[in-house]
Computed example of a mutant assay.
Amino acid sequence: MGRLTRRAPAQQWRGGESQRRVDTLAVEEPLEIRLSGEVVTVTMRLPGDDFDLALGHLLTEGVIASGEDIATMMHCTDTGDDGLPTYNVVEVAMAPGLLPRRPLVGRAEIATGGCGICGTVQVDELLTRLPHAIDRDRTTFTLSAIEAGLAAMRERQRVFDATGGVHAAALITPDGEVLVVREDIGRHNAVDKVIGWAVREGRSDLSGLGLLVSSRAGFEIVQKGAAAGVPLIACVSAASTLAVEAADRAGLTLAAFVRPPRASVLSHPDRVTS
């Protein structure tokens, strides 16, 4: 799979016995995103779909409002110790006459373990800069459509099949049709990649679509989905308290543990029908 996976020797133990073998590992490398020469963030990611990742990050962080805000994107000609291009820096240029819609700040991890005040501040900040009225989106999804979308996403997780070491995200229509699937080391990067794909396709408002995630849903996943305007997020694993609070207040439907025959819809359950 080119830059996506690498082979590594391993000593495997099974049933008290060991043997030498070769494992396939997912590649993890840094990506630096620059906007008009200024560093926006550095994130560890699975190489590939870097322009989608950059666009999705800029949109979900409120730096741009749509793809029309961007003039050009390119990989910088940085090289590694072997003299070959690393493709680990993306330079983005704003459209002529436009400035970022909010100050550029480095990506900060959000501690949500037990600080209620901090969590409330984060949710309040999210709500003040939502560009879409998600609570007015009347799109509904049948549970079978969501399950079909998750199954189709799983079938397209090629890197996960080879390594077991990456997450996936997807966008679906209300009838369960999968529009795009992206994989990444980080679940937030996978989400940025599918949103960035939509931006490149001319869609910055994802109303009427569902966002699927192969992992748990934390606040960051809800924040990104809400910034893009999706009315529904469905995840394979659990949701956090702050994710549920943010989804509820943003008017977004959040479903967790979507594993047939069960699913837990934790906010705005009226969008999910039998």
Rank of each mutant, 00 (worst) to 15 (best):
T43A: 13
T142Y: 04
A65K: 11
F257V: 04
W197K: 01
G176M: 06
V191D: 05
R182H: 14
P30K: 02
V39R: 14
G80V: 02
A239P: 04
V191N: 06
D175E: 15
E147H: 03
E125N: 15
L55W: 07
D52L: 04
L59Y: 07
A95P: 10
L4V: 01
V199S: 08
L59N: 03
A234E: 03
V265Q: 04
R200C: 11
V180T: 13
E147D: 11
I195E: 01
E17H: 11
R34G: 03
D78E: 14
I64D: 09
M153Q: 02
G16V: 00
S267G: 05
H57R: 08
D81Q: 08
F219E: 09
E183I: 01
G176E: 08
A255V: 14
A8L: 12
V90T: 06
V181A: 03
T112N: 08
T77H: 12
V92C: 08
L55Q: 06
T120G: 15
T86L: 11
T112M: 10
V222P: 04
M73K: 07
G251M: 11
T142W: 02
L53D: 01
G48F: 08
L254I: 08
V89D: 02
A246C: 06
G16K: 07
Q12G: 07
S36I: 05
L130V: 09
A168K: 02
V40M: 10
I185D: 00
L126Y: 10
D192H: 10
G16D: 02
G202E: 12
F257Q: 09
D52V: 05
P47G: 01
V166F: 04
G229F: 02
T253I: 07
L35A: 11
E201Q: 14
E155K: 10
G186C: 03
G119E: 13
G119M: 06
D135G: 07
A255W: 02
S18E: 02
E91M: 13
Q11S: 06
N189T: 13
A226I: 08
M74K: 15
A133K: 14
A162W: 02
E147M: 06
D137Y: 00
D23C: 01
A169K: 00
G62T: 12
E147K: 03
K224L: 13
R136F: 02
L53V: 10
P261H: 01
A111H: 12
A228D: 07
A95N: 11
E38Q: 15
M74P: 00
E61N: 14
R6W: 13
L127Y: 04
G251I: 08
A111K: 09
R271P: 09
V272F: 03
V199C: 03
V244S: 04
M73L: 15
L179M: 07
S240D: 13
